[in-house]
Simulated scan of single mutants.
Amino acid sequence: MILTDLNDDERMLSDALSRFAEQELAPAMPGHLERHEFPAELVRTFGEMGYMGTSYDPDYGGGGLGTRGAAIVAEILARTEPSFAAIFLCNSAPCSLISRYGSDEQKRLWLQAANEGRMVASFGVTEPHGGSDVANIKTTAVQDGDDYIINGMKLFSTNAGTPTHGFSTVVAITDPDKGAKGLSSFIVPVGTKGFSVGKRASKIGWRFADSVELYFDNVRVPAGNMVGNRGDGLRQILTVLSIGRVLMAATALGLSRRAMDLAKAYGKDRKLFGKSILEHQGLAFPLADILTKIHAAELMVRHCACLIDANRPFRNETSMAKLFASELAVEAALKAIQVHGAYGIFEEYPVSGLLGEAKVLEIAEGTSEIQRLIISRELMD
């Protein structure tokens, strides 16, 4: 059964976050977007209000609302500003890793700090030669007594190097002779000797959610910073990525709704041949198709979140939701720009930035091709 009705706690979350988005987030976004500047103070406020920890255990400072709650947060943020939603998304991956597989000490030290807004986290998985092949990792972690020494580098680590960055979770090879079963996950605190970040790069989307390279030069961390069991890294990462795809889909859903908000607001007032352009079927019918797909995407997101929260299998479903919703976001952004005509290509109109934001969602957390590969494997079962 697909559950779409919000319970009382979810409704309170939605109402409170919508007010925050309208009153605090929306007015501040244009300046940060123009400067490609990480909104550190807003991120701190957002975290201190408890939104970063929406899905996690209240014993560790979380809100206890599970994946359904996190999906609500991602959607509302993206409907206001997708780049801010990206900060939430990329904090969720390392926190989900610790929440699912970490020790009680790790949860109290790192997860609780992130849940309470004292810091944000980043994820270190992708490497230059690996890309979509997450098992093809070269970063190493060699045991030395009670410590591990990490060497290597990671790409595209969002939230790292920002004023509120507290730690990164990193996947590295601990047992080279075991192949994909020789990977393990570690928590690396900011300030650890030999751990550094590269310069931030400008992107077509996630414009102020900084994404950088991570460098590990003989980085020594205690064995107690290993998350879960040695050799479980690949299984952990694949699970966390699958959960993240629901939040990606929720973000794409929010972006699609923002695109339609902007298209309707502009289209109602724009006259062509004596009537609103939305009364012309050439534009109205494609928008009707997008609205229909938005409804379908919402059902997919909610269903996947319910599967995860019920501890039922979810990998194929989350890939379907991410594939469908992210491609919808691109379609919605393109059509919203088209509704604006020539104005849609000028940066002073918010709609102009949506296409880059949508395209990032098609690529991050696994490209559309990877999602189709995962889904197609069901044909062989």
Results as ranks from 00 to 15, higher is better:
69 G>M: 07
64 G>H: 06
73 V>I: 09
79 R>Q: 15
71 A>P: 09
63 G>V: 08
64 G>N: 11
67 T>R: 14
80 T>F: 09
73 V>C: 02
75 E>M: 11
84 F>T: 01
84 F>N: 03
78 A>F: 06
78 A>C: 12
75 E>Y: 06
66 G>C: 10
66 G>D: 05
89 L>T: 00
79 R>I: 11
76 I>E: 06
81 E>G: 04
86 A>R: 14
87 I>P: 02
66 G>F: 05
69 G>P: 09
93 A>S: 15
61 G>Q: 07
88 F>N: 01
60 Y>E: 05
86 A>N: 14
67 T>A: 11
73 V>L: 06
64 G>R: 05
61 G>D: 12
61 G>N: 08
89 L>C: 00
75 E>H: 08
73 V>Y: 04
78 A>Q: 08
91 N>M: 07
65 L>P: 05
72 I>S: 05
71 A>V: 14
77 L>A: 03
60 Y>W: 12
65 L>K: 12
76 I>H: 09
69 G>S: 09
68 R>Q: 13
60 Y>Q: 02
83 S>G: 15
60 Y>R: 01
77 L>V: 04
69 G>H: 10
66 G>A: 11
81 E>R: 12
65 L>W: 05
67 T>K: 13
92 S>W: 10
78 A>N: 11
76 I>V: 14
87 I>V: 15
74 A>D: 00
89 L>Y: 00
70 A>M: 10
70 A>Q: 07
93 A>N: 06
82 P>H: 12
88 F>T: 01
66 G>Q: 08
91 N>V: 03
81 E>Y: 12
78 A>Y: 06
68 R>Y: 06
87 I>E: 02
76 I>D: 01
85 A>F: 04
83 S>R: 03
87 I>M: 06
63 G>A: 07
61 G>L: 07
73 V>T: 03
69 G>I: 10
92 S>H: 15
79 R>L: 10
61 G>Y: 05
75 E>G: 09
62 G>T: 03
69 G>W: 04
91 N>G: 13
84 F>E: 03
65 L>C: 08
70 A>R: 11
75 E>F: 05
66 G>R: 06
68 R>N: 13
77 L>D: 00
71 A>G: 11
78 A>P: 06
60 Y>P: 00
80 T>E: 07
86 A>Q: 14
81 E>M: 08
61 G>F: 08
79 R>M: 13
77 L>F: 13
86 A>H: 14
71 A>C: 15
76 I>M: 12
89 L>R: 01
82 P>I: 11
74 A>L: 02
78 A>G: 11
93 A>E: 11
79 R>C: 12
67 T>Q: 15
87 I>Q: 01
91 N>A: 13
66 G>E: 05
87 I>N: 01
63 G>D: 09
65 L>V: 12
89 L>M: 01
71 A>Q: 13
90 C>P: 01
77 L>M: 09
68 R>L: 14
74 A>T: 00
87 I>L: 11
80 T>P: 00
85 A>T: 01
